[in-house]
Design a protein around this nucleic acid. Sequence first.
DNA 1: ATGTCTTTGTGAACGCGTGCACAAAGATGG
DNA 2: CCATCTTTGTGCACGCGTTCACAAAGACAT
Lengths: 254, 254
Amino acid sequence: MATGRTHRPATRSRGIPEATVARLPLYLRALTALSERSVPTVSSEELAAAAGVNSAKLRKDFSYLGSYGTRGVGYDVEYLVYQISRELGLTQDWPVVIVGIGNLGAALANYGGFASRGFRVAALIDADPAMAGKPVAGIPVQHSDDLEKIIQDNGVSIGVIATPAGAAQQVCDRLVAAGVTSILNFAPTVLSVPDGVDVRKVDLSIELQILAFHEQRKAGEEAASGDGALPTAAARSESADQGPDGDMPAVMPA
Amino acid sequence: MATGRTHRPATRSRGIPEATVARLPLYLRALTALSERSVPTVSSEELAAAAGVNSAKLRKDFSYLGSYGTRGVGYDVEYLVYQISRELGLTQDWPVVIVGIGNLGAALANYGGFASRGFRVAALIDADPAMAGKPVAGIPVQHSDDLEKIIQDNGVSIGVIATPAGAAQQVCDRLVAAGVTSILNFAPTVLSVPDGVDVRKVDLSIELQILAFHEQRKAGEEAASGDGALPTAAARSESADQGPDGDMPAVMPA
DNA sequence: ATGTCTTTGTGAACGCGTGCACAAAGATGG
DNA sequence: CCATCTTTGTGCACGCGTTCACAAAGACAT
């Protein structure tokens, strides 16, 4: 998994644990798949298997939302889809801006899974004047000079940062000042934001490093790294079960 | 953050907690930045601030690696960079294959932050015959028919899946059968893998949904959703502190 | 050498998340 | 209406992760 919670005092919002919130989208995806197959009800056991979690955990998660199941039967798929969607705030439209239209930004802009989840790419913003006006994914790129106006005109509260690390904090500050209160950060930097602003971070490099750690453990051990030979301070390394909407990865062209 | 741990029995590898492992790359990035500014030593307080964590947590994390600090002074930057790199297995070369060269796969292939961390894109693989031979990021795309041979010839143990969800499990199975034991999955699907194989998942859609949840909490509450009016089952919704290498987000062209 | 001052390393307490195991609830059949 | 069977909802215990707070360790000055 490529996630990491940033700047979140583990504040349990109205009794729903953060860990549960993080799993709701997972359940929702599995449920939507069932819904498309016109499955009327599902047991916690089946749904848990589809979502890849423990069934007891799933039931406990749902218990935070209320008692939506029927004992002896299971959960009504359609009803549960609605309840989770509502809880996640997906029944409303969320305009989103993407800042930094490089390779990644463009890939994000092309992602088709936004709309089906209530997210709408309201604008693409880049600092490069040469990009301005050029359409990406059918949306013309706008220059970052107009960032504040774009945010306000569209009532945007969620921003995606896909700029180089050096620009991320500055972009973040402007987004926040303009009214954005939730940020998804792809830049490899720790963003500092005022209280009340949520930041979530996606960092491929970190994910790979975590995999490498475990990989080393699996492969190694017998390789017996010379633990004794500690280097001096100068010895630095030179260093098919298809989702409903999401038939594509998070970032995929149509 | 766009991460989610998948299929990991919280097995504490040789005493290093999983949560600590997930933070090591963060420390490493901060340390590398200090190293580039030729800062010789750093205190836990300073480093923690740079990495965006609590200083006590950082010290405890480091304590799992050993006693690398000097009381009254702090940590030797270069030495710590080396120790963490070694612990994460970044002192060796990790050949990686990317399967699914769509928008995202291409963006990943162009990511420059791989090499500086010991990761090397050994091959790009796609199922589309039209893609075969076409260079992406200077690397010719190979057809998925040759997947097994590519894995084995290059000694690849880490695979990145950037295919549509429908193909992900099948690709995963083939990767695993060919010898891959760590997978970074960008497809919105729960992958099932045998024991001994690590899977980490990156899902943009989930991250946005989590943000939407908190956003709704912040904006809402007074919006007073009509909780009483429960819909029938049919009422479904229609639905600049620059990192060293990582001057770019995880996925950015050179 | 002695004292002071800074910073590490960690013992201990606390809180969250997980999973077990079971009682309560309801469906279903006779 | 009663018995049986399935599945939920949850009380409880356990373990991991976080944080506090402080003793131990060393640098540095005198």
